[in-house]
């Protein structure tokens, strides 16, 4: 079964997402939550790294956190948005689940 990583930090402040991507094997799912959703934005300094990651990983972002931060129109295409129920489904479909804090 593929694993699920959650990341809750902006990639421009901490290295959690960068480190997470370095430890993501092909097919791993990554869910960006809380400040981690800033990592889902297009046209940031981190966007090229994310575009590259999208080639081999499934990347999701938590929609309530995107809306709370006002970045709903700036999300990179290819990133799937989920609500809290979708978060639960991702956890049920993957194992293990690890939080990159």
């Amino acid at each position: 079964m593929a694993m699920l990583y959650t990341v809750n930090k902006s990639p421009l402040e901490r290295n959690a997402l960068e480190s997470c991507l370095r430890h993501a094997t092909v097919g791993t799912a990554i869910l960006l939550i809380e400040d981690g959703v800033y990592g889902a934005m297009a046209q940031t300094a981190f966007t090229p790294a994310l575009e590259q990651a999208l080639q081999k990983l499934h990347i999701y972002a938590l929609k309530p956190d995107i809306e709370a931060r006002g970045i709903q129109d700036k999300i990179l295409p290819g990133i799937a948005l989920v609500d809290y129920g979708g978060f639960v489904d991702l956890v049920a479909q993957h194992s293990p689940v690890m939080a990159w804090l």
Partner: peptide, 9 residues
């Protein structure tokens, strides 16, 4: 549990 989920900072 089948799954453990951690929330932190």
């Amino acid at each position: 549990a089948d799954r453990v989920v951690v929330f932190g900072d």
